[in-house]
């Protein structure tokens, strides 16, 4: 697993992206969530050997990245981070599935390799879509969208609390860690005993913080009901966004334009 410090940095970065201003940033969170869902389902529902059919789906991330003015290099570097995990599981496919299914000139291609690359591509696509969703929407707006889509308010409120205190507590943890590491020479003292105490301290502090937060909520009239500030309404643009992408993605899924185009390109010659 990657270091949490690095992950937190990413967290900040994504959040800053969500603060940008583009037409796509203003699309209702619900429209973006649902479009992303349609995208993921379309991609995932392709067969394991339908490698080429995956390519046209790049239109979704590419257009959203471009339209939202998101930094390509940063997102790509983040997306590539998941590759090792996928490689670990996917690499068994070429080893186990050696059936030669295609021959391109001197190269014999086994089914395993094709399904391996299809796993990699699917990962890239689905991870990209999730990251783009967050970068274009921002976590709080995403949570509000989910609440409007029916996620229980208790769960949404709790997600927002988590998000709010992530950095506060992470910085506390970083200070604790620094304090320990400065006094641990050559790894001594980083064992389980001191770890248990440190985490215990962090836990108690977090707990007490939760109590203070609760008190401050009470002081402002909280009586058990979480009020979501009335979110934006679902406008014409949002409907168009959802319908447009939904239809386009379904069309890509059903009519595999890659193959049609491929047949056109190669077929014409042969």
């Amino acid at each position: 697993m990657r270091s949490v410090e690095g992950a937190l940095l990413d967290f900040r970065q994504l959040e800053r992206l969500a603060e940008r201003d583009s037409p796509l940033h203003h699309v209702d969170a619900r429209a973006k969530i649902l479009a992303t869902l349609v995208f993921i389902i379309c991609v995932i529902s392709l067969g394991r050997y339908q490698l080429a059919a995956l390519f046209p789906f790049f239109i979704f991330p590419v257009v959203l990245i471009a339209g939202g003015g998101l930094p390509v290099r940063y997102l790509v570097s983040k997306i590539l981070l998941v590759i090792p995990f996928v490689l670990v599981v996917g690499i068994f496919n070429p080893l186990l599935d050696r059936e030669i299914v295609a021959i391109a000139g001197p190269v014999q291609i086994s089914g395993g390799w094709i399904s391996f690359f299809s796993i990699v591509l699917r990962s890239l696509l689905t991870v990209a879509s999730a990251l783009i969703l967050v970068s274009l929407t921002g976590f709080p707006a995403l949570c509000r969208g989910l609440a409007q889509l029916g996620l229980p308010k208790v769960f949404v409120a709790q997600l927002l609390f988590l998000y709010r205190y992530l950095f506060v507590l992470a910085e506390e943890a970083a200070r604790l860690k620094l304090a320990r590491d400065q006094r641990c020479f050559g790894g001594k003292g980083t064992g389980l005993a001191s770890f248990g105490t440190m985490i215990g301290h962090l836990l108690l502090r977090s707990w007490e913080r939760a109590e203070r937060v609760y008190r401050s909520m009470l002081s402002r009239g909280f009586a058990g009901e979480f009020h979501c500030p009335s979110g934006s309404s679902f406008g014409v643009g949002d409907t168009l966004f959802l319908l447009g992408w939904g239809l386009l993605l379904l069309a890509i899924r059903l009519y595999d334009p890659a193959r049609l185009l491929g047949l056109l390109l190669t077929g014409g010659v042969q």
Partner: peptide, 8 residues
């Protein structure tokens, strides 16, 4: 930090 617990 205990008082400002919402997202904006």
């Amino acid at each position: 930090d205990d008082q400002l617990f919402m997202s904006t």
